[in-house]
């Protein structure tokens, strides 16, 4: 039956673009920056990628992820920030305010125990809760964007509470410095 030559051309073009652009590094689900060439780039999902740097350098993304903590967790169906989450976000905001060059994308995620489309909305709610909190802590709104992945990007793969607990998360992802 009908083949779709133009669609295939488009697809081929996208495939080439993807080869030049490593995925973003920050969520731990894409190989931790494998293939990253040390420069800034736009990922295949259109999200900026950035060098991790040295974890002992307090201005590096690696330090932000490992020492500050780049993610907070939620209860089932909830987007309310726990006391522990607020503590993490206070530290995040402090770091972000001290390192104003970075852009920020907050990713909202859900566990697998829900329908795909509801989980997209739930992830958006969670990302938005983090965004609003960071703004109250002085992070410039213009630096922040949110994205929801719903249940599409789990970090843990078991089908039990210990995994679901880690997948119900919002991750603060650093992007290309706003000034560059």
């Amino acid at each position: 039956m009908a083949i779709f030559p133009k669609a295939l051309l488009l697809v081929a073009a996208l495939g080439l673009a993807a080869c030049n652009n490593p995925d973003r590094y920050a969520d731990g689900d894409t190989g931790g920056g494998a293939g990253f060439d040390g420069g800034w780039g736009t990922g295949s999902d259109g999200i900026d990628s950035a060098p991790l740097g040295d974890v002992n350098n307090p201005t590096s993304p690696a330090f932000f992820q490992a020492r500050v903590g780049d993610r907070v967790f939620f209860l089932v169906d909830q987007s309310v920030l726990s006391a522990e989450a607020r503590d993490t976000l206070v530290l995040q905001a402090r770091w972000l305010n001290e390192n104003p060059a970075y852009g920020i994308v907050i990713e909202g995620h859900a566990d697998e125990r829900g329908t795909r489309e509801y989980n997209l909305s739930l992830g958006a709610r969670r990302a938005s809760a983090v965004q609003e909190f960071l703004i109250t802590q002085g992070v410039a709104p213009a630096r922040l964007r949110t994205v929801s992945y719903g249940k599409e990007r789990p970090v843990e793969v078991c089908s039990d509470d210990p995994c679901w607990t880690k997948n119900r998360r919002a991750v603060t992802v650093l992007t290309r410095p706003a000034s560059s």
Partner: peptide, 19 residues
């Protein structure tokens, strides 16, 4: 599609492949 990094609704024409 997350082609631009954020989910958005896309319409594709099957005969031409245009999106």
């Amino acid at each position: 599609s997350y082609e631009r990094g954020f989910p958005r609704v896309v319409v594709m024409d099957l005969a031409t492949g245009s999106r």
